[in-house]
């Protein structure tokens, strides 16, 4: 990804700190770490009133997995802001180009070099990844899993597709823009809509909590996957080249 980037040219001109200063910095950090360790040992095993608090309210949350309950119900503001942070970063790194908004989200390329093994492998792998991602999303209600894990897995599928060289993504397409915002939009809509029933933002009514959390998580999964793939695309300095193809070619007569 960063092969072609001669990173930190300034770093080559600008020498590292002198050894004396480095030594002082190391000493100060070592002292700080020692102090932190002492504090940690002195602190002892922490009391955890939140464990019982979460456990006693788990029934109201609409899900059985306490971590998901904390993420999407008890402390859903955190997660809402997290999705917002992701969107802000996506906007910051996105190569905004309104002229490209008419180009389709996924366009099929004709690769100059083909790898049949990779193609066949991806044909098996990509559906499996999508299904696994859906499973992770669904199982997040009761077991470890959820929107972030599912989104990350889906993003992996997207990046694999990109690296295979047959497809390119255009995040200025309206479909892509929709994907980038749908997570935050649905989260905000649900959060605002529940004011009608409970009077408090993001406080889901108990009977609806499970389904509302699932709706938010589905939208968040799509957005997280789209944003992660966007980050990968945007930070690509040049299009990936399949070097292994070149190697194979040289052996041919």
């Amino acid at each position: 990804m960063f092969n072609n980037l001669t990173l930190g040219r300034s770093a080559q001109h600008k020498a590292d700190l002198p050894v004396g200063v480095l030594f002082m910095v190391a000493l100060a950090i070592a002292a700080a770490c020692l102090f932190l360790t002492m504090a940690l040992i002195d602190f002892g095993p922490a009391e955890q009133p939140l464990v019982t608090l979460v456990a006693s309210h788990l029934e109201q949350s609409g899900v059985e997995n306490p971590v998901t309950a904390v993420l999407l119900n008890f402390r859903s503001y955190d997660t809402l802001l997290e999705v917002a942070v992701l969107l802000i970063v996506a906007l910051a790194v996105m190569p905004a180009n309104s002229e490209q908004s008419k180009v389709r989200f996924i366009s099929v390329l004709v690769p100059t070099e083909r790898s049949f093994v990779l193609e066949a492998f991806l044909r098996w792998l990509l559906p499996a990844i999508v299904v696994t991602s859906g499973y992770l999303l669904w199982t997040g209600a009761a077991l470890p899993g959820g929107a972030f894990q599912a989104g990350a897995l889906l993003a992996g599928a997207g990046i694999l597709l990109l690296l295979a060289g047959h497809h390119s993504f255009n995040f200025n397409a309206s479909a892509a823009r929709l994907l980038l915002v749908v997570g935050l939009a649905v989260f905000l809509l649900v959060g605002a809509a529940v004011i009608l029933s409970s009077g408090i933002a993001l406080a889901y009514p108990q009977a609806w909590a499970g389904i509302l959390i699932l709706v938010i998580e589905v939208a968040a999964t799509l957005t997280i996957a789209a944003i992660l793939v966007l980050l990968f695309c945007a930070l690509q300095v040049e299009a990936p080249r399949a070097n292994y193809e070149g190697l194979i070619k040289e052996e041919r007569p």
């Binding site: 464990v51 979460v54 942070v85 992701l86 980050l231």
Partner: peptide
């Protein structure tokens, strides 16, 4: 460090990981 693992730090670190990824990308 207690009897059962505290879920709140788990959820917060999960959030933190995603924010760290976003920050790194930025």
């Amino acid at each position: 460090s207690g009897v059962a693992a505290d879920y709140v730090p788990h959820a917060m670190v999960l959030t933190g990981i995603v924010v760290a990824v976003a920050g790194t990308a930025m």
